[in-house]
């Protein structure tokens, strides 16, 4: 694990056209081989942060950087270095899992993959051979999430953005998903994950942050929270603890 962050938010602010301040000078960094979990209620600014990293929107102030590249200045260059898995992975329903993988691999500029490679990756994320050639419109949410992870793996980007990835998954699928994340962390990926799932975050993340009303109100290494009741802490912050952010260890 290197010390310089691969994913970096520097005083990131976003005010929408209707005047709503969605992000207020948010700064954090995610190093390679680190999983950074952002907790927060709906509207806290988690998805806005991810949208800025993906250049789906521009920041009002500050910068989001991927591998040192400022996303709103060089969006295509920045996106080449990041993979994304959404809360509800939606793929092309008329395509099979293999065709979806092939399409997104080509979009990533990875033309060298063979059919065997696609099969291997689908097996790795836990999709059995009998569904590889099935149209994904019949897939469950868990199966689509696995396809989404497979697409992220195919891209082989140094950073991964996950937007509520375990939301709506059954416990088994959630557990399998966490094992996959662990393996990606071991490969040295910098992983930024927004989630509502306090327990999964505590289980898997290296750093846990809490966002509220567009601000980062807490950021702690997960190890330091081991002896604390994270749920209680989270509820305290949500209830109105707006004090200064605890210093990073």
């Amino acid at each position: 694990m290197t010390d310089s962050p691969y994913l970096e938010a520097v005083a990131l602010s976003k005010r929408y056209e209707d005047g709503v301040l969605a992000l207020d000078r948010v700064s954090f960094g995610v190093r390679p081989g680190q999983i950074y979990a952002m907790l927060g209620a709906n509207g806290a600014g988690k998805t806005t942060t991810i949208n800025i990293f993906l250049n789906l929107i521009d920041p009002s102030e500050g910068e989001a950087r991927i591998g040192g590249i400022v996303t709103h200045r060089e969006p295509l260059e920045a996106k080449a270095h990041v993979a994304y898995v959404s809360e509800n992975v939606m793929l092309y329903g008329n395509f099979t899992a293999m065709q979806n993988l092939e399409f997104f691999a080509r979009l990533s500029g990875k033309h060298h993959y063979s059919r065997d490679d696609y099969h291997d990756i689908l097996r790795r994320v836990g999709l059995s051979d009998d569904v590889h050639y099935k149209k994904v419109r019949g897939f469950s949410k868990g199966m689509r999430q696995k396809c989404g992870i497979a697409i992220a793996i195919l891209k082989d980007a140094p950073a991964i953005l996950l937007d509520e990835p375990t939301s709506g998954l059954d416990p088994k699928a959630g557990w399998e998903f966490c094992r996959l994340l662990e393996s990606l962390r071991q490969e040295g990926k910098a992983i930024l994950m927004s989630t509502h799932d306090i327990f999964r975050a505590k289980e898997i993340a290296d750093t846990i942050a809490i966002m509220k009303e567009g601000r980062l109100v807490m950021e702690q290494p997960a190890g330091e929270l081991a002896h604390l009741d994270l749920e209680k802490l989270y509820m305290e912050y949500m209830a109105g603890h707006n004090g200064p952010m605890p210093a990073e260890a």
């Binding site: 789906l56 996106k79 080449a80 959404s86 509800n88 793929l91 997104f104 990533s108 500029g109 697409i151």
Partner: peptide, 14 residues
């Protein structure tokens, strides 16, 4: 609406 646009534009697609 289906969400595929977001996934496509998470790639370096002009």
């Amino acid at each position: 609406e289906r969400g595929t646009l977001r996934l496509v534009f998470s790639h370096a697609v002009p």
